[in-house]
Computed example of a mutant assay.
Amino acid sequence: MADPLALSARAGLPEDMRVLLTDVPRDRWDQSLPEMARFWLQMHQGFRQHHAHMAALTTAWRQGQLDVRGLHDRLIPALQQFLQHLDGHHRIESGQYFPAMARVEPRIATGIALLDRDHETIHQVLENLFKAGLALHQGLAGPDAGDRAARLGDVIERAQMPLARHLDDEEEIVIPLIALKGDQLA
């Protein structure tokens, strides 16, 4: 039986994991949020934009606006930066913030555990991106460079859903917590 809370299966969080969202709903996430919460949202928006940039590059290549060399020269550095930033972000969350958050607010502990589990799934997504990017880089001069570029584009496209789902779900747990109890996390 498939896990309904698996990152690839869920369409959102169950209500019991969104308990703090009632006190700080998304429609109230404005400039009155604490600096830490605004920073968290900015980081997440940066990941969304970075992924969209990579997807746009592969779309431009598929539409003939870039040759394979042009795609490589623009996409590989962007991919490296994306992988490094997201991996670093997740390491800090899993190693420092998530344990502290679960201690500060036990009602969100199961949601935090789910987010931490998501990181394992996303690590595989990042590994797939790395391997596809490396394949393009290593085979750029070969006869199958176009196939390698297409595979990388496909991997970037498949990465969008789990990354977006995780970021959205994480925000629904973490942002209200920071708004309500962020001073206890320092």
Rank of each mutant, 00 (worst) to 15 (best):
I76A: 10
L140C: 02
V19R: 14
D118E: 02
E93Y: 07
A37N: 11
H44Q: 15
L167W: 03
Q42C: 07
A56F: 04
F130H: 14
D183C: 01
S32D: 11
A141N: 02
L71D: 08
G153F: 02
L13G: 10
W29K: 02
L57E: 06
D118Q: 05
I112C: 07
G182E: 12
M101E: 12
M161Q: 14
I156R: 02
F130R: 14
L71R: 12
D73C: 04
L20P: 03
L83R: 09
V125A: 09
P77F: 09
I178F: 05
D118L: 04
L140V: 01
L163G: 00
E127V: 02
R158L: 10
D169N: 06
R38Y: 03
L129P: 02
A145D: 05
A2K: 09
P34N: 14
L5Q: 13
E171Y: 05
E105R: 11
P106R: 05
P25W: 11
R26G: 13
A141V: 00
L75R: 12
R18Q: 15
H51A: 14
R158F: 07
I156V: 14
R107D: 04
M36W: 07
L126Y: 01
E170A: 11
G70F: 09
A6Q: 00
A37E: 11
T58F: 11
L177T: 08
A9F: 08
I175Y: 00
L7P: 00
D3N: 15
L134Y: 03
D3L: 06
G153A: 02
A150I: 09
V24W: 06
G133M: 03
I175C: 04
R38N: 08
L71C: 13
V174P: 03
D116G: 11
D27R: 12
N128D: 15
L7W: 00
G139L: 01
H53W: 03
E15A: 15
M1R: 11
V174W: 03
F98D: 10
A159M: 11
A6D: 08
E127C: 03
E15W: 08
V125R: 05
E120H: 12
L33E: 07
D118N: 04
V19H: 09
Q96G: 07
H44L: 03
R107A: 10
R151H: 12
L7D: 00
H137F: 00
A186G: 09
L152D: 12
H85G: 11
L86S: 12
A56H: 08
L167M: 12
